[in-house]
């Protein structure tokens, strides 16, 4: 059984079918690319998968559980984590605290033991700090752990977002343009990190990206959308040679 199964997903914004009959199957641990021209509906699909928008039709099944139209918080608990196209960090908090917020549902203690500093507070905070620091290490952020998140350079902010998303222990990780604003070196490094994360955590990854060489090299399967509908699906080779994809990207009849 596939980890994520999306069937005929659709959403309408005031008469406009932003996404129409979108279907997708992602296996455990798969690296999946979602590409398409600007305004094709890629981020809208992400927003439906994570509960920010409620789809008008279709269903989303994660690991056998129907999560269609559930609240974002519940979907996070079900096992989908995401990053955002326009970075959304907790800017006034430290880098470490950003990841600790991601660990919120993984390591728990009550509000009261937090206020009274009971033994469980110290024990759980230590576990949290250890987990958060090891995540930061993967992304090379351990030296910035006590800086304010907003003081990080752009590329590191993107990495921190991925670290925070991973902290929620997801089954599926959605990355919205993870390489945006990075130079070729940083992009290559990011591709390595994503590979490492997949192998280390066994998490399936669905990513939106405009850097074609990045997607083609990294992703095992790719789905192309245009005007809200799927126009091609398959491995990099198939997609690259598909006449409709070429038409969508380069123009044509």
């Amino acid at each position: 059984m596939a980890l994520l199964e999306v069937n005929h997903l659709g959403i309408v914004f005031g008469g406009l079918h932003a996404v129409d009959k979108f279907s997708l199957k992602i296996e455990k641990g798969q690296l999946y690319g979602l590409i398409g021209p600007n305004g094709a509906g890629k981020t809208t699909i992400f927003n439906m998968l994570t509960g920010v928008y409620k789809p008008n039709e279709g269903e989303i099944i994660l690991d056998g559980m129907n999560i269609t139209g559930m609240h974002p918080e519940k979907i996070s608990k079900a096992g989908i984590a995401r990053t955002f196209q326009n970075i959304r960090l907790f800017n006034d908090m430290t880098v470490l605290d950003n990841v600790k917020v991601g660990l919120h549902n993984q390591v728990r203690y009550s509000t009261l033991s937090g206020i009274l500093r009971l033994p469980s507070y110290h024990e759980k905070e230590n576990i949290m700090r250890g987990k958060a620091m090891s995540l930061l290490k993967i992304f090379g952020l351990e030296d910035e752990a006590y800086q304010k998140a907003s003081n990080l350079p752009y590329g590191k902010q993107r990495k921190l977002e991925i670290a925070r998303a991973l902290a929620t222990n997801p089954k599926l990780l959605l990355l919205d343009e993870p390489a945006a604003g990075m130079n070729p070196n940083e992009t290559a490094e990011l591709a390595e990190t994503i590979h490492f994360v997949r192998n280390q955590f066994g998490v399936a990854i669905l990513l939106i990206e405009h850097d074609m060489s990045f997607v083609m090299e990294l992703c095992e399967k790719i789905v192309v959308v245009d005007y809200g509908s799927i126009i091609a699906q398959g491995d990099a080779q198939t997609v690259r040679n598909d006449p409709r994809v070429i038409a969508a990207y380069l123009g044509g009849e």
Partner: peptide
């Protein structure tokens, strides 16, 4: 504080 800084991101990590 995460709600204060970014409500949508807070929801997305299960707050």
């Amino acid at each position: 504080m995460s709600i204060r800084d970014n409500r949508i991101a807070a929801e997305s990590v299960g707050i």
